[in-house]
């Protein structure tokens, strides 16, 4: 069983030979591996493809995540984005001031300007030996980004109709980007729904606004490819809803108790997570990584259905030896 097969086996509900290891090594961290600055790679998909390929080769985990600037909609439906130094790309201006702007939204053309070439390059480099995951914003996340998080969440009470209409208006973007990744040959999609976290909005609002559009998009994409739903920070109160979206796996973050999550939804979906990217991988030592990996596999590894991962993107300043340790101990403790 190679890395890709191991990863896909879990998403198909089958038993792998060991727990697959797919940490979220994306544009935050990967450029460092090839000695490049983040801003080089955020602005240049070829650089990021090279970085992600090199990082996988170096640490030999089971899957690479195409994310952050690499892909069909780096400017988020036309929002001006600022890239400086090692900062992540920032959307510095939102483009939806109100209902009248919904018509002005320009859906991304994923294949224009060679934007998908780096993704194809990453898929070619993987050559079926390890998995490649494409990262897509959910309709809810797109909507929050183009409206601006504050205005968007203020609208929940001020103008809930606008929230629903905006989410509906941007849903084609999620679908277009998802389908472009599928056409480029990725093995799975990660639908990112970070703002739907129960650390930010109530479970009731999740069910009212984020869940319906997320479920529609995921169910449709899942007809073609396995989908992983990512919601960071606390997602425990909405875990059962997330499991009803049609996702094959849920990517959960460190605040969620893995054993409780496994018990709540383990019979229905796989879980991917949830080593703390900051306190363990960035700031902990190798012993802390080992303890966290052992505990995570102990809590969720039994009977399959588990992919070992960081709970969220690994920060730039994380020591390389901690990522190496994550993989090493994942193998040590993850054998079935």
């Amino acid at each position: 069983m190679n890395s890709r097969e191991r990863f896909l086996a879990v998403l198909a509900g089958e038993m792998p030979d060991r727990v697959p290891i797919v940490p979220v090594v994306d544009g935050f961290f990967a450029p460092k591996v090839i000695g490049r600055a983040n801003d080089d790679c955020f602005a240049d998909g070829a650089c990021l493809a090279e970085a992600l390929t090199a990082a996988q080769l170096k640490f030999a985990y089971d899957g690479a995540v195409a994310e952050m600037g690499l892909g069909p909609d780096p400017n988020v439906l036309g929002c001006p984005v600022e890239i400086e130094g090692n900062d992540v790309p920032l959307v510095v201006e939102t483009i939806v001031g109100g209902r009248e702007d919904l018509e002005k939204l320009a859906m991304p053309d994923p294949w224009a300007g060679g934007k998908m070439e780096p993704v194809q390059r990453l898929v070619e480099a993987a050559a079926g030996g390890y998995a490649v995951l494409g990262s897509v914003r959910s309709p809810f996340e797109y909507a929050a980004t183009v409206r601006g998080l504050i205005e968007f969440m203020t609208d929940f009470y001020r103008d809930p109709g606008l929230v629903r209409d905006l989410i509906e208006a941007v849903r084609p973007a999620t679908m277009a980007v998802g389908r472009a990744f599928i056409k480029a040959g990725v093995d799975a999609l990660v639908v990112k729904d970070s703002f739907a976290s129960s650390s930010m909005i109530s479970p009731e609002h999740y069910r009212e606004f984020a869940f319906p559009s997320g479920r529609e998009a995921i169910a449709e994409l899942a007809e073609e490819i396995p989908v992983i739903l990512h919601i960071c920070r606390n997602s425990m109160p909405i875990l059962k809803d997330m499991a009803r979206t049609g996702a094959a796996a849920l990517e959960i973050d460190s605040p969620v108790d893995l054993a409780a999550a496994k018990s709540a939804v383990g019979g229905k979906v796989a879980l991917k997570g949830n080593i703390d990217a900051v306190s363990v991988i960035e700031k902990g030592g190798i012993a802390a990584v080992e303890a966290a990996v052992k505990a995570a596999i102990g809590a969720a590894g039994k009977g399959g259905g588990f992919i070992l991962s960081s709970g969220d993107s690994i920060p730039l300043s994380a020591p390389e030896e901690n990522i190496a340790a994550l993989v090493e101990y994942g193998r040590k403790y993850g054998s079935y």
């Binding site: 969440m153 203020t154 929940f156 001020r158 129960s198 930010m200 609002h205």
Partner: peptide, 11 residues
């Protein structure tokens, strides 16, 4: 309370 409720009060 969550963020939308804080924003509602802020408004």
């Amino acid at each position: 309370y969550f963020i939308p409720e804080m924003l509602r009060s802020a408004e």
